[in-house]
Structures are given as structure tokens and as C-alpha cells.
Design a protein around this nucleic acid. Structure first.
Lengths: 207, 207
DNA sequence: GTCTATACACCGATAGAC
DNA sequence: GTCTATCGGTGTATAGAC
């Protein structure tokens, strides 16, 4: 998503352009295409032309529904996080939340997408703020689960804290995913075994 | 680094263009600029024009020293890994290799650069192969250190394996770095404390 | 709501003079 | 080894007809 680095006419007045409504089918198609391009081709390949092509629409239509490409990415991220939070709440209220949670995190089909959003967030302030908000909210919910689990184990695991587990699960899942995509798997089985062991110990099957 | 998606004349014969020698100062400046752009602006902003601008050279010179932009990135990565391996060997032969190693990994100023290379490697086959080669070589060396440390602890840590530690350190360092860049620090102190505790336990100060 | 037409900057890459 | 000139394609974004 190349950004204009230099523009002759300094800045247009706060963009009086028309913007399409949120319930439109084309708008959804554009958001779908945006995620598909991000996931399959990476953010460097994200452009209004490519998005429109994937969505089967004209390029200029992207600018009818979204003021700028940054707005489009932000909207796609917000839609994604809304879905993600809903799924997350289901997981946390399941019978064995830690097992469900780790299943979700380690088997996420969205890890690649998340990576692209994070990468973009480093350079786009509005997106960065959203990513931080979402990550912290997510982590708070996860911490609550970990706290309940650790309380049952008294002092046998007293060097562990809930945020520690929360972060380590995310860290492991993300590295394993990235390396798997690249074709690296050295040590992965060992790490999975460690987590499986720990998960079963923290959250054994109901007696 | 936008890649040409379509070309009228199918493919030029195997590029009979001139290529500059490796000991040239301009060539080094181009490689330096490439890493600077990657680190500061991300791979989406990497272009021959931008690289030349940062290096204070003409755009076309980039193509005198490197056949394509992909070649340039690959050369920059190879130069980086050669330096990295040399530093790595120093660390491993130090007095407390695990402490030195973790210092290096957790305080790396190159984490951002590494991320960009990994991200590019997902789409550039030649770079991907180099990244895999480097990562696996690196991991083998690290595993050797871990093996020596774990042997001294007999059966007290028998659910741990060397690759497990190697991977978990990398995973934690990378997530902590990325989140720190984004402005997220929830749980980071806890994770650092866990690693400090484990590192001191595995590799105590000489008696 | 969707279309055509268009502006202007930037991209990778090459040819050939000096 | 470095320069100028250039090709054709892609980028964001806008104006205005239908």
C-alpha cells in the first residue's frame, strides 16, 4: 500500500466526498477483498486497484465507500476484531476454557492477517491505537481465565502469574505460525508438547 | 517494494547487464541504505529510488550493483546474517553463554529488521531459503548451549528439552519487541521475570 | 450507487553517453 | 563507475456523467 510521499497541492479541505452506507453489499465485498489481499499477498500488495479487482468491482468504487486506503484498512480491522471478540467470549464460557482458548490461538487461520495488521500499525497511528485497544482488552479477558486456573493450584505454581501464561501462549503461537509458514519446524513439537502438558495440568478433565 | 505483476515482453534473456564488484563503497552505501529503509519505513517503502536517495546516489546505480530489487534484499540479508553469526559465536564462547545469549536476543536492535526480512521471505523464494538456512543454523548452535546447561540439572527439569528453551526464548523476545514497538506492555514484566529467574537457575554465577 | 475519464507521483528496469 | 533519458505500468485520489 504505497503512500503518497509528496503532493503539490498541500492538503484538500476536510474531504467533502460522499461516503456509502455501512449496510451495502459492495462495501462488504471490498472489506472481504481487503482481508484476502492482506492475507494472501501481504500489505505491500494492498491497493485500491487490487482490492477492487479481487472484489470484482471498479477501483474508484473503493473511494466511494472509504475516504482513504488507511480508512479502509482500519474498517477491515474493526470488523475483524468485532467478530474475534464474539468468538472469544464463546470460548471463555466453554467447559474447558483454557483448552478451547489454546485450540483457537494455536490453530488460528487468522495469524497471517494479524501479522499484517500489526506491521501496518507500526506506521499508521489510527490503526495502531485500535490494535493496542484490542490486544489489551483481549489480554484482560484471558488473564481472568488464567487467574481462576492458577488459584486452584495454590502454591505449587507460585512463580507463575496469569499475564505470564497469557503472553507466553501468544508468543509461542505466533512464532510457531510464522516459522511454519516459512518452512521451519525445529523445536516446534517440543514446544507444543510443553504447552499440552501444562494445559492438561492446569485444567484437567472433569472428574 | 511493488513488484511488476504483468510484463508485455515475456522475459529478457538471462540479464547480460553489468554488475559492480563487491568491494565498492557505493555498493556498501546501497546495502546500508536498504537496511535503514527496511528498519525505519518497512518493506512496503523499499524502492530503488528511496534507497538511492537515502544513500545519496542516483537511482540507476542501484541497478548497476544489483540485478533486481530482490537481489538487493537478498544481499543485504546475507551481509546481516554473516555479521550476526560472528557475534553469535562470540556470545556462545563467553563465560555465561545463556546470559549473554538472552541479553542479545532480548535487547536486539535488529528485531524490526528481522521482522521485515521474515515478512518479505514469505513472498520471495530465494530469501525464504536463506532465512530458513540461517534460522536453523542459529538454532542448532543455541540448542548445543541448552543441552550442556540441562545436563547439569539431571532429572529436576526433565520435562524441558533444549529446543524447547531455544524456541521459547525467541518467541518471547519477538512478541515483547513487537508489542513494545506498538506501545503494549501488559504482562511483559512478568515474562521477563520468569526468564530472568530461569536463566539464573540454569546458569548460576560461578561459585 | 456505479460508471468513465483523468491528474500526477512513483515503481522496476533498460539503453547508451561520458 | 556514474550519468541522463526514457519506457510502460501501478499508486492514491478526484471530477463529473448517468
Amino acid at each position: 500500500m504505497a503512500t503518497v510521499r509528496l503532493r503539490k497541492n498541500p492538503a484538500p479541505p476536510p474531504a467533502p466526498r460522499r461516503i456509502g452506507r455501512e449496510d451495502n453489499a459492495a462495501r462488504e465485498a471490498i472489506l472481504d477483498a481487503t482481508e484476502k489481499v492482506l492475507r494472501d499477498e501481504g500489505h505491500a500488495a494492498l491497493s485500491s486497484r487490487r482490492v477492487a479487482e479481487v472484489a470484482g468491482l471498479k477501483q474508484q468504487l473503493v473511494y466511494y465507500y472509504f475516504r482513504t486506503m488507511d480508512d479502509l484498512v482500519l474498517a477491515a480491522f474493526k470488523r475483524r476484531t468485532a467478530m474475534s471478540m464474539a468468538r472469544f467470549e464463546l470460548v471463555l464460557s466453554s467447559e474447558r476454557p483454557l483448552h478451547s482458548l489454546c485450540d483457537m490461538i494455536f490453530n488460528s487461520t487468522h495469524a497471517r492477517l494479524t501479522m499484517e495488521y500489526m506491521s501496518l500499525a507500526l506506521r499508521k497511528e489510527a490503526l495502531r491505537a485500535e490494535v493496542v485497544r484490542f490486544t489489551e482488552e483481549n489480554r484482560r479477558m484471558q488473564d481472568a481465565v488464567m487467574t481462576r486456573l492458577l488459584e486452584r493450584h495454590g502454591d505449587r505454581l507460585d512463580m507463575l502469574t496469569p499475564p505470564m501464561l497469557t503472553v507466553m501462549i501468544s508468543a509461542a503461537a505466533r512464532l510457531l505460525y510464522m516459522e511454519h509458514e516459512l518452512g521451519i519446524d525445529a523445536g516446534h513439537a517440543d514446544v507444543r508438547a510443553l504447552f499440552d502438558w501444562a494445559i492438561d495440568r492446569l485444567e484437567p478433565a472433569a472428574a
